[in-house]
Simulated scan of single mutants.
Amino acid sequence: MKKYLNPKELPSLPNAEREKKETSKPVSFFETVYKIARRIPRGRVTSYGAIADASGLKITGRMVGWAMNAAGNAQPAVPAHRVVNSKGELSGKSHFATPTLMQELLEQEGIIVKEDKIANFKSVFWDPATPSKKDSKKKGD
């Protein structure tokens, strides 16, 4: 007879376990995505795929885009304008209040946008999987 694992005995995802709230309520992938997006420094951008990879969850960049589309109601606010596609294109701009709002917000942070694409994408790209000095300091405390 084949033995099946008890779902209660299955190992949990590493990030999901760390992300559990005090009430032990599981954290949704939306909350995980938003937490990563809130860490994007002002004047920097990242991609949907980079957030998906850094989440530790088995999600795709398309799922991150879905979460970003719903970020307008999230509290605290999520800087969804800092998330672009892997080519640096403003692929999510149609989900903002006006067709130019995403570009305007990026330009206010000093990011150069030409023809709906970030001009210096490689130099302003922020990898959420790479710990920042601030994150390293927290771990060393």
Rank of each mutant, 00 (worst) to 15 (best):
G92L: 12
L105S: 01
A70E: 14
K122C: 09
Q108V: 08
K133L: 10
R82D: 00
G88Y: 00
G110F: 10
A80K: 15
L101S: 10
G88E: 03
P99S: 09
S86A: 10
A74L: 06
T100Y: 07
V113F: 01
P131G: 07
W126A: 02
S91L: 05
D116M: 11
K114R: 07
K134Y: 07
F96Y: 13
P128Y: 04
E115T: 06
M102H: 09
P131M: 04
K133I: 09
E89T: 11
E109F: 08
L105G: 00
D127S: 07
H95S: 10
Q108P: 00
V113M: 01
F125C: 02
N85M: 09
S86C: 04
N73C: 05
D135E: 15
L90M: 04
K93M: 14
K87E: 11
V124F: 01
K114E: 15
V78D: 01
S123L: 05
P76T: 01
P79H: 07
P76E: 06
E104K: 14
Q75D: 09
M102T: 10
K87H: 11
V78K: 05
P99D: 11
M102L: 13
M102E: 15
K114T: 12
N120A: 07
A97L: 13
P131C: 07
L106T: 03
D135T: 11
M102R: 08
A77S: 13
K134I: 08
D135F: 00
S86F: 05
F96Q: 04
K122T: 08
L106W: 00
K122H: 13
L105Q: 13
A77E: 15
L106H: 04
E107T: 08
Q108F: 09
N73V: 12
H95C: 09
G72Y: 12
V83Y: 05
K93E: 15
V124T: 04
A129Q: 12
A70L: 14
E107S: 07
K87Q: 10
L106M: 01
L105H: 01
P79M: 12
I118M: 02
W126S: 03
V78Y: 05
S91W: 07
V83I: 15
H95W: 11
T100W: 06
A119I: 11
M102K: 14
L101R: 10
P131I: 09
